[in-house]
């Protein structure tokens, strides 16, 4: 028996919206400790990693580990039928399920919707991601990071991110010209202004803005985002989801020819 009930079903809707442009199908692994998922885009440039802890769910039961192979597009179609204030319950009784049941219930418990999504058997393509002590960690407003990436992507396809003890600089060079946006360390009480820089070693890395813009679809999951970088390593962009877990994106850097 597997059953997971999310009080705020809208969070699940937002997660699926945030990854649906990046990955087409995913294996969700359910275990006693919660749900996890890892999937790469078809070009193997970006990876999404989701972890939801069992104690973040209103009800959670998983008697034995199961893998749920899902088409994100089809999952998205079913989740469109859930209201933003609904609870969402995932359920299956089978040991090797061929479908996953969904229950959506509104706050007044006056409307209950029930759907079943056919599952797929997917080759798992799990990568071992080493635990990394990142040499530059930036925590800032997710909306502000999203705005910067969006603005710069009209000038260039790539952005160079350079950290120093005091600031992080986003630079672009394109056919029409060049520019940069520098964000300084700022210990404001307001989330929207706050910028936390933990710089052990400065880094300078270049990334494709197209992917960063896709990651930023997760902006509504968290008011802050953390950018974790080490020289010659993939960027890790993390959105923490309150008590539930985290949504992480990894992006391979652009390297010199």
């Amino acid at each position: 028996m597997f059953e997971a009930k999310l009080q705020q079903g809208v969070i699940f809707k937002k997660i699926v919206d945030a990854i649906k442009d990046l990955v087409k199908s995913v294996n969700i692994d359910a275990s006693t400790s919660g749900l996890s998922m890892q999937a790469m885009d078809s070009a193997h440039v970006a990876l999404v990693s989701l972890k939801l802890n069992e104690n973040g769910f209103k009800d959670y039961r998983c008697d034995r580990p199961i893998t749920l192979g899902l088409s994100i597009e089809n999952l998205s179609k079913i989740l469109k039928c859930a209201g933003n204030d609904d609870t969402i319950t995932l359920q299956t009784d089978e040991e090797e399920p061929s479908s996953l049941k969904f229950f959506f219930e509104n706050q007044q418990a006056s409307k209950i919707s029930e759907f079943s999504l056919n599952l797929m058997s997917l080759d798992s393509e799990s990568l071992g991601i080493p635990d990394t002590d990142y040499s530059s960690v930036i925590q800032m407003s997710s909306a502000e990071f999203s705005r910067i990436c969006k603005e710069l992507s009209s000038i260039s396809e790539t952005v160079e991110i350079e950290t120093s003890k005091e600031s992080v600089k986003f630079s672009v060079q394109g056919d029409i010209g060049a520019g940069s946006i520098t964000v300084k360390n700022n210990q404001s009480d307001k989330d929207v202004d706050r910028v936390d820089l933990q710089i052990d070693q400065p880094v300078k890395l270049t990334f494709a803005l197209r992917y960063l813009n896709m990651f930023n679809k997760a902006v509504s999951l968290s008011s802050t985002v953390s950018l974790n970088m080490s020289e010659e390593n993939p960027l890790m962009v993390e959105y923490k989801i309150d008590d539930l877990g985290s949504l992480r994106f990894y992006l391979a850097p652009k390297i010199s020819d």
């Binding site: 790469m40 070009a43 193997h44 440039v45 970006a46 990876l47 393509e125 799990s126 990568l127 071992g128 991601i129 080493p130 790539t158 270049t206 494709a208 390593n233 993939p234 990894y250 391979a252 850097p253 652009k254 390297i255 010199s256 020819d257």
Partner: peptide, 13 residues
């Protein structure tokens, strides 16, 4: 510059 692949950083499990 060229785009690198995640496969060159992370190993298969």
């Amino acid at each position: 510059m060229k785009q690198s692949s995640l496969l060159s950083f992370f190993g298969n499990v």
